[in-house]
């Protein structure tokens, strides 16, 4: 059974309410900004809300995590509390898995049902009468109504940048593993080296992804607006890219903490949580590469 030294119950904290206000301003500001763009009205207040909200959220994260790290380094945390963090992070990652699961589900539904049905397959024959000239293909270059959703000239070649990105991201999982091993061996020099290399790989991935997006928009006419292929492509790769960005920030914070002398071979949950997140993002990419780019 568990060790039951007293469980640390923190005293009152102002970080959660700051976080709630920050979240409200960020999301409310984002909503107001999008709303005012749509209504073509003045968006100054929305921008102020969004930016101040984002700043408050960033400050909250720094302050809250700093408080937790300080408590941990004071030795307030029992092994039981350490498990709470581990379980908590695992379930959080599970929720992220379900988020991506929904988008992959959308992709499969579109490819297996929606697009063939529009071409008259199955017993939903009526759908095919709307756009008789429509042909079901995948990648879907031309949407049923090309006037509303302009056609794509060409899709991304998976064997160029996406392949390089796959090598980079899978490689970064291994370099992170090496960093973890170095941390356990108390080899701080190698830890810094491998962790920095991981971040470098992550940032290179992001850079190439941005390049690919620009290429898609400017040369391939592959955009969010180019029908369902563009929509699923940018939604999946976009949310994945956002997660790589968050993961990179987490790794940067970890590197900063390594330089501060944090983490011991026995106790380094922050490092492990960050690396779990990174591996998760890597696994999502492997699914993405196969189902979005390759197949």
């Amino acid at each position: 059974m568990a060790h039951h030294s007293a469980y640390y119950v923190p005293p009152q904290s102002h970080w959660p309410i700051i976080g709630a206000v920050g979240l409200f301003l960020t999301l409310g500001g984002a909503a107001a900004l999008i709303y005012s763009l749509q209504q073509e009205s003045d968006s100054l207040l929305a921008q102020i809300m969004l930016n101040s909200g984002a700043l408050i959220l960033a400050g909250m994260m720094i302050g809250w995590f700093a408080a937790v790290i300080a408590e941990s380094r004071q030795g307030l945390y029992s092994p039981q509390l350490d498990r709470s963090f581990r379980y908590g992070m695992s379930w959080f990652i599970f929720s992220e898995v379900m988020f991506f699961f929904a988008f992959f589900g959308v992709l499969f539904y579109i490819r297996m049902f929606a697009v063939p049905w529009l071409d008259g397959e199955g017993d939903k024959g009526l759908a095919s009468m709307l756009w008789p000239q429509f042909e079901a293909t995948w990648p879907l270059l031309e949407a049923p109504n090309p006037d509303q959703f302009p056609p794509i000239r060409e899709v991304i070649n998976p064997w160029h940048i996406p392949l390089i990105n796959t090598v980079l991201l899978v490689g970064s999982s291994f370099t992170l593993l090496a960093a973890h091993k170095a941390l356990k061996r108390e080899d701080r020099g190698k830890l810094k080296g491998w962790l920095s290399l991981t971040i470098l790989l992550g940032l290179t991935f992001l850079g190439l992804q941005i390049y690919e997006y620009i290429h898609a928009y400017t040369e391939l006419d592959l955009t969010l607006k180019s029908g369902i292929y563009g929509a699923t492509f940018f939604m999946l790769t976009g949310f994945h890219g956002a997660h790589v960005t968050i993961g990179s920030i987490i790794l940067l914070v970890l590197l900063f903490r390594v330089f501060q002398g944090h983490f011991t071979p026995e106790s380094h949950f922050g490092f492990e949580a960050g690396s779990w997140y990174w591996h998760f993002v890597d696994v999502v990419w492997i699914f993405l590469f196969t189902t979005v780019y390759l197949l």
């Binding site: 929904a102 949407a143 969010l224």
Partner: peptide, 30 residues
């Protein structure tokens, strides 16, 4: 399932404001 709700409202937002066609047959969605 709450993340799935997050995904579906996000797709609604994208369809309304950013020209995607998740739920529009004219763009190949449904």
């Amino acid at each position: 399932v709450m993340p799935v709700l997050a995904a579906v409202v996000t797709m609604v937002l994208m369809d309304v404001h950013f020209g995607t066609s998740f739920f529009s047959a004219a763009g190949g969605g449904d």
